[in-house]
């Protein structure tokens, strides 16, 4: 069974005003369990609207969203329960911190869930530790931390809710390369250890190539491509026409093929290219 399933979903912004925009048009997709799914698209492609449908922050004009096989809008009054199942880390989540201490802030979600005090404590400690926040940091005010640390607090706040699906909107936006690696690597590690489904939204193709198992590409509110990294990145021209950047290495590999070396075309990371070249050479040795 898939973690999230979206069927024939449509959404229009600013209906019946001069600013009407068809944000999503007849979207069908399913998010697999136990893997990292990437959603890629340029700004205004509808990707943010789409993920806000996953946890019921936005209601589709038509079509259905299923979480765990259940239509989330069947009982609109219970929509807030869906938000415990589908945890959402918004863009620049550090701007949502509010509590006196980091501990209190991480505990906000679990407390809203009505968990026992011991359970809350347990969850806060574990997820904070996972995000690299020690006891000393937990006692500080979140506003005294560095940008990267703040973001990890926000992330821990959602992880502490132990959602079945973790959705992250541009989790690495605005960070330096080391910060990007740490946060994205941490998310993947979390996925492997917890076995939850993780959805990452981004427009960085390099990052997506490195961290995702499965990809959906949105363009102007429509689903343009779907598949694993191999399949998606082999459509380099289509991606470019949708205003997306293809990883640099893709261009290099393509040029290598053009110059007559028989290297696999399904390569989208530097390490992948190194391995392929090494296979190519070893294949000759045999």
């Amino acid at each position: 069974m898939s973690a999230i399933e979206v069927k024939n979903v449509n959404f229009v912004y600013g209906k019946k005003t001069p600013y009407e925009v068809h944000a999503l048009e007849d979207i069908n997709l399913s998010i697999k369990e136990n893997c990292v799914t990437g959603i890629i698209g340029h700004t205004g492609s509808g990707k943010s609207t789409l993920i806000q449908m996953f946890n019921g922050l936005v209601k589709p004009d038509s079509g259905k969203v299923f979480v765990d096989g259940k239509d989330i809008w069947e009982k609109p009054k219970e929509i807030s329960k869906i938000r415990y199942k589908v945890g959402m880390v918004m863009q620049y989540p550090e701007y949502q911190l509010f509590a006196d201490t980091v501990w209190e802030d991480i505990a906000y979600g679990p407390k809203n869930m009505g968990l026992s005090e011991d359970e809350v404590k347990e969850r806060v400690t574990t997820s904070a530790a996972f995000c690299g926040l020690d006891g000393e940091a937990l006692a500080k005010s979140p506003f005294d931390l560095s940008g990267g640390q703040k973001r990890r607090v926000a992330l821990a706040g959602i992880m502490a809710m132990k959602p079945a699906v973790l959705v992250l909107d541009e989790p690495a936006a605005g960070l330096d390369p080391r910060g990007r690696r740490e946060i994205l690597g941490g998310i993947c590690k979390y996925q492997k250890e917890s076995g939850t489904a993780v959805v990452i939204v981004s427009h960085s193709m390099e990052d997506m190539a490195k961290y995702c198992d499965e990809l959906f590409v949105l363009s102007h509110g429509k689903l343009l491509l779907h598949g694993d990294c191999k399949e998606v990145f082999s459509e380099g021209e289509l991606l470019r026409s949708a205003g997306l950047d293809v990883p640099e290495i893709y261009g290099v590999v393509k040029a290598i093929r053009k110059q007559g070396a028989d290297i696999s075309k399904y390569i989208y990371t530097v390490n992948g290219a190194v391995d392929a070249i090494s296979r190519l050479l070893e294949g000759r040795d045999e």
Binding site: V253, A255, L281
Partner: peptide
């Protein structure tokens, strides 16, 4: 750029393969 990088790498691959052959 892509092409120069690819050319350097391909030449080297061909060179190595040539020796191996």
């Amino acid at each position: 750029d892509f092409d120069t990088c690819a050319r350097l790498v391909t030449e080297k691959i061909k060179e190595v393969r040539g020796e191996n052959v």
